[in-house]
Amino acid sequence: MSIYEKILASVQPDDRKYWTWQHKLATRLIEVMGEQKLNQKQLAEKTGLTEAQVTALIQSNANPTLRVLARISQRLGTDLIEMNFVVRKTQDL
């Protein structure tokens, strides 16, 4: 087993999911910036975030709340993420 594989195997599943979500969010945000031709400063102004917060998002170093994600999505006019919560029917609960 290579060092790479050993390190990968040492990653806790929830950490891996969390970091991957961060990367996906960052990737999507960068895509939207490209589509709307926004730089980081313009994105910050449009979403009400600080530039530091935008930088953190893009660098996969942020853990934004659902409220913040909702605000960003609303102000950019596009969803950054798809929220497919699993909601059971009442009789299943």
């Binding site: 790479y4 390190i7 990968l8 950490d15 991957t20 990367h23 990737t27 960068i30 893009i58 996969s60």
Partner: peptide, 28 residues
């Protein structure tokens, strides 16, 4: 190190990679 390999694994899932995503040196 774990984040780095996780990031590489994530890159493998992408159809393309935005150059901006490769500014790894700027990562925390």
């Amino acid at each position: 190190a774990q984040q780095l390999v996780t990031f590489i694994e994530y890159l493998l899932t992408l159809e393309y990679i935005s150059p901006d995503r490769l500014r790894f040196e700027m990562s925390p």
